[in-house]
Each structure stands twice: as C-alpha cells, then as structure tokens.
C-alpha cells in the first residue's frame, strides 16, 4: 500500500491489518517510532478534527508536522498549481496528508509525488480515514464487525461518511436500516450496489420502532450548505433528534456514533448515557491514523 486515497482501493485484508495495528497502538504506542519523520498537512479547507487528530497521531509516535491550513498567505494564492505545491511539500516531508474541496485532488497529487499521500477528504468524494476509524470504533464497541444491525440516520443522500461506511461494512454481512426524510434517501446506485453484494437493508422514515433491534446508530448532521433551497432545508432540518428518552428501549450493547460536529441532532442528555460513543469515536481517530501513518511510512511491524 503506497497511498490511501479511496476505500475502493483497500482490500478486506489490508483493512483488517490496519484495524489490528490500531488496536495494538492504542494499547502501546511505543512500539512504533516515527522520530525524524515529517508529515506535511496540506489542508486547502478548514478542518479541526481530522487535522488535529492526524497531528496528534504523528506527534505521539515521535514525528513532526509541518503544513498549511487554508490557502491564505500561501503560494496557492499567487496562482501556484496543485501539482507544484505538492512537489515542493514532497521535498520537505516524508508523507503528505491532504484535504481539498475538489473531488479527485488527492489521487492527482499521489500521481505527482514520490512520497505517500493520505486523502483526508476530497470534496464529496472520499474520506477513507474516517471510514476506517468508524470501522475501528464499531469493532471496538461490539467486539466484532460481523452480522451487526446498524441504523444510518439523517442525510443519506449527500453524506459521504455514510456512503463509504455502507461499502466498508458490506463484506461483513450487516443489516442496515437507512433512516432519512424522503428527500434525503440513500442514492439508488448505492442501494443497487449493496443488493448486488448481498447486503440486506430496509429504508425507513422514522427511527422509534427500530431502536430496540439495532447494535449501532450512526447519526449524521443534515448540512444546510448542501441544500440549494432554504425552504427544503427548513422542512427536514429537525427530522431526527436523538434524546436520552428515545433510547430507553435500546439494547445494552447499542452505541450511538456521529462523525461530529453535531448541532442539535443528538441532545446533550445522551452524552451521559452508556449509549454515547461519539467522543470515543473521535479519540479512535488518533489510533487509526497512527496505524495509517506507520503503515504508509513502512514502519508497521
């Protein structure tokens, strides 16, 4: 594995190796030493969690971080091409972690440089490190990835995270409930891909009745910026609000996940229940990103 650009490139075996390494690093990060290695963070748009968890991952393994956040004051503002910026960064560092608003940007950069490239989000396309940390979180909270019942809730039409999670879990024979307003249903091409892969799923518009059945509830924010029509957004923005009261019939092992930031879709009274797992999920991002950095830098043992 030279780069991590898209979940489509990742075999089930490689995924399992990364999950195992993340687990080992969570227990004992001292087994990998990335000292004198430099990670270049090329963030063409704002990101708090992804960027900071990458920085934390690199630094906790002894490595260093350089980089940019936003293009203000950089050579990009002077009209430098993406390829040129990346080639220079490659001279300064051992691995590039990049986020870019245009889809396919990370793939393009990986073709331009000799060092490993990690896609930390390219527009609405891929965000493989999020998918991997979600898998790790599900594995850690349930003890297995096999045969789980999961509800994916919220914006299933535009939500990049839920699309790639559905694909990432497909080999493990899950049962999905896709819970969304009618206007934000899972795209038809994804449903047909899942059918082809033999994955069973049901589409729902309400969540109440399925809560006693599920192992994982993956909630996403309905993003205002995705709606061309303000009125349409107002109609659906509060479609699903998860409260502690709503979870009273949940199974003991049920966990609520959310890629964060949340707005109002999970009320704060859920935070103190045993079902809340989204802060652990964010922490897991550090271990998974440590595993990814170590693997791509050739240090995974």
């Amino acid at each position: 594995m030279k780069h991590l650009i898209s979940m489509r490139d990742l075999s089930a075996d490689k995924t399992l190796q990364l999950l195992k390494l993340a687990e080992r690093l969570e227990k004992d990060p001292s087994q990998i030493d990335l000292s004198r290695r430099v990670m270049a963070a090329m963030f063409y748009e704002a990101s708090t969690r992804t960027r900071m968890s990458f920085e934390s991952a690199m630094k906790r393994l002894g490595g260093e971080v350089i980089g940019m956040v936003g293009t203000s004051g950089t050579s990009v503002e002077k009209g430098e091409t993406l390829a040129d910026t990346a080639k220079i960064m490659a001279r300064y560092s051992d691995i590039i972690v990049m986020r870019h608003p245009m889809e396919g940007a990370a793939r393009y950069v990986s073709e331009q440089v000799d060092i490993p490239v990690v896609n930390a989000g390219d527009g609405a396309n891929q965000h493989p490190t999020q998918s991997l940390l979600d898998l790790y979180t599900i594995l850690k909270s349930q003890g297995t990835l096999k045969g789980l019942k999961l509800a994916l809730v919220g914006d299933l039409k535009y939500g990049r995270t839920v699309h790639s999670l559905a694909y990432a879990l497909a080999p493990f024979k899950p049962t999905f409930y896709f819970v969304s307003p009618k206007s934000l249903r899972m795209p038809a091409h994804i449903l047909s891909d899942l059918t082809q892969k033999g994955v069973s799923f049901k589409e729902k518009t309400t969540i109440e009745n399925i809560i006693p059945e599920i192992d994982i509830m993956y909630v996403t924010r309905i993003q205002r910026e995705r709606f061309p029509d303000r009125e349409e957004y107002e109609k659906v923005k509060n479609a699903y609000i998860i409260t502690a009261k709503l979870l009273t019939k949940a199974k003991d092992n049920m966990k609520v996940l959310h890629p964060l930031p949340r707005v109002n879709e999970i009320t704060t009274d859920v935070d103190s229940t045993k079902y809340a797992y989204y802060f652990d999920q964010a922490e897991n991002g550090v271990y998974m990103r440590q595993a990814i950095l170590a693997t791509l830098l050739g240090e995974a043992k």
């Binding site: 091409t81 390829a83 870019h100 245009m102 889809e103 396919g104 940007a105 393009y108 609405a124």
Partner: peptide, 10 residues
C-alpha cells in the same frame, strides 16, 4: 464541475 480535472492543468 467539482472534479479536480476541471480545476488543474491536467
């Protein structure tokens, strides 16, 4: 229109 091929000389 959001594809990188439409934004970079490639």
């Amino acid at each position: 229109p959001k594809c990188i091929t439409n934004a970079e000389p490639m």
